[in-house]
């Protein structure tokens, strides 16, 4: 959710062309190109003839980046992918690409064609900038910055199996009395009704961060000081790598028995728990995120509106 796949050849990290390039121009979002235009798109480094992959899943269309201008016809081929599933509402334009097919549904990562030289119509000059393809990202018809959807993408990804888009219940970053009044996100999480089973089963919970330690949280004690109750369960994950310093706490979930607690190696997106299926369990899981011990608001990262690493002040 929110993170795009590799677009070109061996450029696994979707690196942009160098900035500044030989002629001083840049391929970053909203910067000036050689032609003097300011482009609300990015230039991903890509050599002529390298394979191009669909960065998102969606419906594919042929698109002419230069609108059919005859003198630019050698580069006037591109693709528009209108997102479906997790990318509903987004559209990606990639140019210039020689497509191997011109329509239909593509999954993220599918090979769709090969890169063309964007400046083939120029005799000289711009040929010495690094070869690249231009990527523009539209959300509800407006151009948005694709940079962090392509590179160093820090979105948490899907959290609950039955909620592909991290749809939230209530306000983002709300306080919740059910879980001691902490602030966080109430991620909708319905039971899953499989065809071949009689009763609905509890959905899987995917780890929102990469982690090294998993532990159990119990919220309430009874009058004897013992932890009881079916719905009295949750887990925490201590982050590592990109997520160093972060800690995710998930309420209304139960850790997978086969993983166990303690020092583990958790990959982001790994199924680590299931939702509780007690009598009074709500149809949601509650996520709390801490950075260096403090509760932080990272709504954009959870809803995948923007996958940029948040800039927390130094505490």
């Amino acid at each position: 959710l929110g993170c795009m796949k590799k677009v070109c050849g061996n450029n696994a990290k979707n690196d942009f062309r160098r900035c500044p390039d030989t002629d001083g121009s840049c391929g970053n979002y909203h910067t000036e190109r050689t032609s003097g235009e300011i482009i609300d798109g990015v230039d991903v480094r890509c050599h002529l003839g390298e394979p191009i992959y669909a960065p998102i899943e969606g419906e594919m269309y042929f698109w002419r980046p230069y609108g059919g201008k005859r003198e630019k016809s050698c580069a006037d081929q591109g693709v528009r992918i209108e997102g479906t599933g997790q990318w509903q509402g987004y559209a990606v334009h990639i140019s210039s690409v020689k497509l191997s097919f011109f329509g239909g549904h593509v999954e993220a990562g599918d090979e769709i064609g090969e890169a063309l030289n964007r400046y083939c119509f120029n005799d000289r000059g711009q040929n010495d900038v690094e070869p690249h393809v231009e990527i523009r990202l539209y959300k509800e018809g407006r151009l948005i910055d694709p940079t962090h959807h392509l590179q160093n993408c820090m979105c948490t990804g899907q959290i609950c199996e039955s909620n592909t888009r991290n749809v939230l219940l209530g306000d983002p970053f709300k306080t919740d009395k059910r879980y001691n009044g902490v602030r966080g996100w109430d991620v909708e999480c319905q039971m899953i009704d499989d065809d071949d089973e009689d009763s609905p089963r509890a959905p899987m919970i995917y780890s929102p961060i990469a982690g090294e330690i998993v532990g159990r949280i119990r919220l309430f004690t009874d009058s004897n000081g013992a932890y009881t109750g079916c719905d009295n369960d949750g887990i925490f994950i201590v982050g590592i790598d990109d997520w160093l310093g972060f800690e995710a706490r998930l309420y209304n979930v139960k850790a997978r028995a086969d993983i166990g607690f303690g020092r583990k190696r958790i990959i982001q997106g790994e199924p680590i728990a299931t939702r509780l299926a007690c009598e009074n369990s709500p149809d949601s899981v509650f996520v709390e995120i801490r950075f260096e011990g403090r509760v932080v608001n990272i709504t954009d990262i959870i809803t995948a509106a923007n996958c940029k690493t948040p800039n927390f002040p130094v505490f």
Partner: peptide, 8 residues
Amino acid sequence: EFSSSGSQ
């Protein structure tokens, strides 16, 4: 409702 990729 789902969002659409177009501006209309």
